[in-house]
Nucleic acid binder design. Structure first.
Lengths: 233, 233
DNA sequence: CGGTAGGTTGAACATCCTCAAACCCTGTGG
DNA sequence: CCACAGGGTTTGAGGATGTTCAACCTACCG
């Protein structure tokens, strides 16, 4: 029992960790979360994880994905990055695309169960809080794009990713995986690839970050925060 | 009975109209929507309608408001415009500010009732759809700020406002109220006031719009759409 | 009248983009 | 082992887009 629980926990841990910030996960809650999960899949980079089907819901279990819109002229805007533990549920017009090799699991029935929980129950509240957190990220993204310079946007994005990794129990305070190309960053931040490159160089020259071997190391978190948080909490 | 219902309908109509796109509003639903509404208030331009209190919820019944974040350096980003029929519920860090004189009504208990509706019931589904619509606007805003030029952003915003007015049953297809200053537009679109001014002039010179006496008239909707919808549906 | 809020204009400048080329690394096939 | 191809990063130069500052204009309001 504990064993199977632990086994499942290994696969789902980041999502459960997110929920457990708001609710104590007892046997009942774990039952809701772990029963009847769908198929596991892996998605190569650049392929769609979810597309068009409004019913489909998948839980990211590894790798980085992006909620994206593609414009008529071919340009794409990544609206939100999705990491392990995030629930991917695009609405009409959006796609969830694998930015690195991604593993995911069909979470349709689990999410349906969460949505059907008695409103006001602890688990329903936690689920609601997780969704609000996701909404909050969208608002942060609007502020980034609307009222920050390229330098500030980049710093701010890095800070968001550090927080999310810490919250999910992955990576320490100063070092996070950095598996994405500068093109992806440019599609998130609404900048050209070339300019992203120059901004990252500037951040390195200013000794705020280093990038090495698929990781990003923050060498001056305090300074990074003063640059990237001229606004938010 | 019909009379009091009609009276209330006059005040709430835009919100009910939004819901009624997804659910037939029978006596039961109207009872949920119209019972026990809170105090009506009016807010002068530039004052906060909602601030800090995470429990408070107000329904805009007239005027234009904005969901805004204020940055440390004083600059503000308007995340979403809120018109009559929109539910204002800022989370921590945001404020709902009156951009024109606004009238609003305390909708805390009504929203609580909606949230507590049996999940899956028609009214609950409609309420969910309205919230998704709001979320969709946020995604549109991200695309605007992230991957459109000033000219396109402005056209796109105008189109959004036309759609919303039509959907709410206010204003016809080609003429909507335009009660906001260029400063407000600049805070929505992430541009300087001066540049908003020049872009609006350009739109006028290109014979896409006219502005007169507190109204915006679209003189070439087709062209405006090709400019402003290089992406979205 | 004077004051204020909003709109408009010009000039100088900063930021960011585009285009084009070079470079680096890794994997692949001869 | 080398040649080469491809994806990603880096660099430079020139240009488009948008900002800042400062002034002026207009309408409205006391």
């Amino acid at each position: 029992m504990t064993l199977t629980a632990r086994t499942h926990a290994a696969a789902l841990h980041p999502f459960e960790a997110a929920l457990s910030l708001y609710v104590r996960l007892g046997p009942h809650e774990l039952n809701v979360l772990r029963t009847d999960l769908g198929d596991v899949r892996t998605h190569p980079t650049r392929t769609a994880i979810l597309d068009q089907d409004p019913q489909a819901v998948r839980l990211i279990t590894g790798g980085w994905a992006g909620l994206a819109r593609t414009l008529a002229d071919g340009r794409r805007q990544i609206l939100d990055l999705m990491l392990a533990g995030d629930v991917a549920r695009p609405s009409r017009g959006e796609t969830v695309v694998a930015l690195t090799p991604v593993s995911s699991i069909d979470a349709r029935t689990m999410v349906r169960r969460l949505d059907r929980q008695e409103p006001g129950s602890p688990l329903a509240r936690a689920w609601r809080a997780v969704q609000l957190e996701q909404q909050r990220r969208l608002l942060d993204q609007v502020v980034r794009l609307g009222s920050m310079t390229a330098y500030e946007r980049t710093a701010n994005l890095i800070i968001e990713l550090i927080r999310r990794h810490k919250r999910a129990g992955l990576g320490d305070e100063r070092r996070i995986p950095w598996p994405i190309t500068q093109e992806v960053v440019s599609d998130v931040l609404g900048l050209s690839i070339v300019h992203v490159n120059r901004v990252l160089q500037q951040l390195r020259r200013d000794r705020l970050i280093e990038t090495r071997a698929g990781f990003l190391v923050v060498t001056n978190l305090e300074q990074l925060a003063t640059v990237g948080l001229s606004c938010m909490d």
